[in-house]
Design a protein around this nucleic acid. Structure first.
Length: 556
RNA sequence: UGCCCGAUAGUGUAAUGGAAGCACAUGUGACUUUGACUCACAGGGUCCAGGUUCGAACCCUGGUCGGGCAACCA
């Protein structure tokens, strides 16, 4: 799980070529989050690419907050974003930057453009400019202020900066080509008036740069060699290049790749926010959320997230990765790295009638069947046990391996026991199993070598610890909740995505610390929640064991 | 009706002009003191049509299908 898989992709091919040709001698990348939301698994793909590429080429990856829109951003997210990147295991070292640190330079650059006759102040409202911009199929026309003198434009721009105009009355536009087939080249706005308080620059600025103007300059200032972003910015690249060429400054290369899409998952920030605001989930760190904090609380490992990123690779093809692929990676990690424990999630009482009432034995059971070095633990055994309700059937079908009248089964690590009779309530539901054990089978194997078909998990009734167990399942009932144009994605929310039960745990589990992971044998992978205490343990179900191919009554 | 981008088993991804592989998923079987894990085997693919070439998933041309682009968002 820990060994890094050597990978390559079309971006690394570009880098290899740039290194080979001497165009670049070192590699600098950057991850540029806008501090306006929590990071999710889609961001993990970008983080993994940005930081992973820097690692591969012994370069640097900057963490840069793209804080150019004070209206949308909030400092609350800044800390969370850093925590989440660290959790993934990446480190930006000294290279923490802010777009807002470059506002002075950006302003100077804008003035430089104006002086070159490549930018102008435009008094058209956004509504009015729509007409001038034209449509994809028709050329636009030149706005009235387009031929103003540089001197006048500088005056206007300065007045914009100094708060001499109301919000929205002027923008600064790059003067490019109102007939370009690429709409982004039809005199795009590069500065807008927005008299908002900025978390970093306070009230210094009444104008803020637009993404297209800011981002390329940020990259250029930082000496970023390869600026990776998602496909929707492909059509912005000519503008990115135009600005830096006109400014005659260092020119990074923007390279676009496709976003991550996962089945049964919605990653749009806006929709995630809706789930939180409408109380469909308990918060950004709800274990059903695809946020990094949600997944962390669910019990997913950072290694698994990174492995998924490696596996999906980096291409320009916009596909959708099956969630099963991710689940498989997580199970693989958890199977390898989590200790085993016994917990009964839907308990039914077993009474071993030929076992003394006052007796308790301690049995040693392995913590990990494939890793002897993980050692053993002891679990108490007594006359009354809890076992899974689903492990008993009156009329056992051929494939059923659990308790049925007269069949001997193994109680893991303890004895072979046989169910002789059952009690039922008025509705016919089984309430208790009456069994006998074979004292000769201590440890679970018979001296005469006879075999049993199954090994069941159990917990001693008088030693058991009650715990709240939160069984999480997929948040949606369909693969692509966004795929129906008629219906809102929330209509596909899975009503059973959370089931809270009380389970019976082996006593040692009460000491679990928040974040500790276990495999509850034959049930699934669980981790102690942050709400968990020794007195009131709480466990989150990370995943069930692998989905049954045939019959497994314990799994939904 | 404009411009840009993409297309390899069900899904994701390799092969960069020289035997189409891998993982997940699916099916069958073995093993098992977890119906897990592990192991073995099986099925299944280059969007279409031309062209270049001894040879094309890869290069060229034309189509088809899918995605993106007309915030004072990023």
């Amino acid at each position: 799980m820990s060994e890094e898989i050597k990978t390559t992709n079309f971006i690394h091919d570009i880098i290899d070529a740039d290194l080979a040709s001497g165009k670049r001698t070192e590699i600098v990348t950057r991850f540029p989050p806008e501090p306006n939301g929590y990071l999710h698994i889609g961001h993990a793909k970008a983080i993994h690419l940005d930081f992973g590429t820097a690692e591969k080429y012994n370069g640097k990856c900057h963490l840069r907050f793209d804080d150019t829109n004070p209206a949308a951003e909030d400092e609350e997210y800044v800390q969370a974003i850093q925590e989440d990147i660290k959790w993934l295991g990446f480190d930006w070292g000294e290279n923490l930057f802010w777009a807002s640190n470059y506002f002075d330079t950006m302003y100077d650059y804008a003035v430089r453009l104006i002086k070159k006759g490549k930018a102008y102040a435009c008094e058209l409202s956004s509504e009015e400019f729509k007409d001038y911009r034209g449509a994809p199929t028709e050329p636009g026309k030149e706005p009235p202020g387009r031929e103003r003198s540089a001197e006048e434009n500088i005056e206007l721009f300065e007045k914009m900066k100094n708060g001499g105009f109301e919000d929205g009355t002027y923008v600064l536009r790059a003067k490019i080509d109102m007939t370009s087939p690429n709409l982004h080249l039809r005199d795009p706005a590069i500065y807008r008036i927005k008299r908002a308080h900025h978390h970093n620059t306070g009230d210094k600025w009444c104008i803020y740069p637009m993404y297209d103007f800011a981002h390329c300059i940020e990259d250029s200032i930082e000496g970023v060699t390869h600026s990776m972003c998602t496909l929707e910015f492909e059509v912005h690249r000519p503008l990115y290049d135009w600005i830096l060429e006109e400014l005659e400054v260092f020119q990074p290369q923007q390279v676009e790749f496709s976003k991550l899409n996962l089945t049964y998952t919605v990653l749009s920030k806006r929709r995630l926010l809706q789930l939180v605001n409408e109380g469909r989930v308990t918060g950004w760190d709800d274990p059903r959320m695809p946020t990094l904090r949600g997944m962390r609380r669910r019990g997913f490992t950072a290694e698994s997230v990174k492995k998924l990123c490696t596996l999906v690779g980096c291409t320009k093809f916009e596909g959708i990765t099956e969630i099963e692929q991710f689940e498989s990676i997580i199970r693989d990690d958890l199977n390898e790295n989590s200790l085993r424990a016994m917990a009964v999630v839907d308990p039914i009482k077993v009474i071993i009638e030929n076992y003394p009432e006052d007796r308790t034995e301690e049995f040693e059971v392995p913590n990990h069947p494939q890793k002897e070095e993980e050692g053993k633990r002891t679990v108490p055994f007594s006359r009354e046990l809890w076992v899974e309700r689903a492990d008993y059937k009156d009329d056992a079908p051929n494939k059923f391996k659990g308790f049925t009248l007269g069949r001997e089964v193994r109680i893991r690590g303890a004895y072979l026991v046989t169910c002789n009779s059952v009690d039922k309530d008025a509705d016919g539901n089984v309430t208790e199993l009456h069994c006998t054990y074979d004292p000769e089978t201590k440890g679970g194997s018979a001296p005469d070598g006879r075999k049993v078909r199954s090994t069941l998990h159990w917990v001693s009734a008088k030693h058991a610890v009650d715990a709240e167990v939160r069984n999480y399942d997929r948040l949606y009932t369909v693969e692509n909740p966004m795929g129906d144009k008629e219906k809102d994605f929330k209509e596909f929310l899975n009503p059973d995505s959370l089931e809270i039960i009380t389970a019976k745990l082996e006593p040692g589990l009460a000491k679990a610390k928040s974040g500790d992971r276990f495999q509850f044998e034959r049930v699934g992978y669980f981790c102690a929640d942050k709400d968990s205490t020794e007195a009131n343990p709480v466990f989150n179900r990370t995943l069930t064991l692998r989905a049954p191919k045939k019959v497994n009554p314990l799994m939904p």
